[in-house]
């Protein structure tokens, strides 16, 4: 099994949900995480606080962003186990934020065990 990282960006419609719909969305997240844990493929996950800084270039230039202008904000990540990119992608399709225009970036974690 390989490790994959799911990077979640908030759905652009998240701000338009009613309180009941938000609660429902949260309940779906609970259920999803529980399902992944039950299959023993959930390794870790964290939520990220909105906003932050970017440090760039030789002069270590510090800027606010790119978050300030971007509608899609990275809200958190998972690390999960899967046999292949295809399988990981299938799993990502269960993300509860997809119906509210969220996105999941699926990336394989590089392993250096052969070194």
């Amino acid at each position: 099994m390989k490790d994959f990282m799911f990077i979640f960006s908030n759905g652009s419609s998240a701000g338009n949900l009613s309180p009941d719909e938000m609660q429902d969305n949260m309940q779906q997240w609970f259920a999803w995480i529980e399902k992944l844990k039950a299959k023993n493929i959930y390794v870790a996950g964290e939520a990220l606080i909105p906003g932050g800084k970017t440090v760039s270039g030789p002069k270590a230039l510090v800027t606010d962003g790119p978050f300030a202008e971007s509608k899609e904000v990275v809200g958190g990540f998972f690390i999960i186990k899967a046999d292949s990119m295809e399988e990981a992608t299938e799993i990502a399709k269960d993300c509860p934020d997809l119906p509210i225009n969220g996105t999941v970036e699926v990336r394989e974690v590089m392993k250096f065990d052969g070194m």
Partner: peptide, 17 residues
């Protein structure tokens, strides 16, 4: 690492509302 399967967390119906 993964914890034992448990039932998903629940909050009171309509709490947010």
């Amino acid at each position: 690492m993964a914890s034992a399967p448990s039932s998903p967390q629940q909050i009171v119906d309509h709490l947010f509302r």
